[in-house]
Amino acid sequence: MIIPALIGSLPRPVSLSKKLEQYYLGRLSEEKLEEAYREHTRRAFENLRRAGIRVITDGLYRWDDIFNPLIRFIDGVEVNGLFKFYENNFFYRSPVVKGELSLGENPIPEWLNVALEIKEEVYPGAVLKAVLPGPVTLAYHSINEAYESLDELAEAYAGVLAELMKELPVELVELQEPALAAELSRATREKSDSVSAETAKALIERLEKVKALWVVTYFGTPRGFPEGVILNFDLVEGTLPENYRGDLGVGIVNARETKMERRDRLVDKLKPLLRKHGKLYVTPNTLLDFLPESVAWRKLKLLGKLGGE
């Protein structure tokens, strides 16, 4: 069985960005901004329903990148300048770890409650997952000024995430973990330390005890496989190792190029995987932020057409 799914973000609609700009300039009230979020989320869920995407996210419309604003709600973290997110013309604000990490007050559970409410109205058949950055990716993309090693920092982040996950009103949590496949790009900065493969695996497996996990990797092939999770592989810029036996998601449409894939070729690619795994989720290979909105939706519609037995 093939189940079309969304991973991470949808491109933030320009109309929503305009509302945000007005809000930052003091020309739009918080209530009106919240209305805009809800209206855009509603539209996104309607479009996802029409596209036939069965497992969805809230599109991360309230997030600037996969780290922000979460890192603003973590005590011990300051937010620094802009860094390239891997080899993309897309920038994130970097967490600078200044002290011991702990979760502060945050609105993320409430944001998901709102999304769930809207989903129940417009697309009750879909499964909504929360999206959070994984501890390994957070550690690699932080400027570490407090912990002895990146292993320790990743462990601290895992503690914060576990606490947050317990509060989330959903059963399934997607962890954005590109660093399992592509540690830290030299396009971002030089790497000074690593998270060991054992630590990475152990931390994710520990988080899996808190909530069911969908671990999304991209821009390469993950070197280790945490057990008990759905693991998403990027088949555009990585491969699916022969020895992987767990629950499987495959990123098969290229979210960094506008050229449309041919459906028949995607089907040919999926057939042997389906024979081997029986059930698989098909997704974009990475965040849809890298595409214009119109093309992202065309690619999602294509994914939707792959769904079924």
């Binding site: 491109p11 600037d64 802009l82 013309n89 909105e293």
Partner: peptide
Amino acid sequence: FYGPVRVWGNAYFNKAA
């Protein structure tokens, strides 16, 4: 042009093909 692509925050540019 297919439409704007976000660079960070609310900054976009029209990425051509």
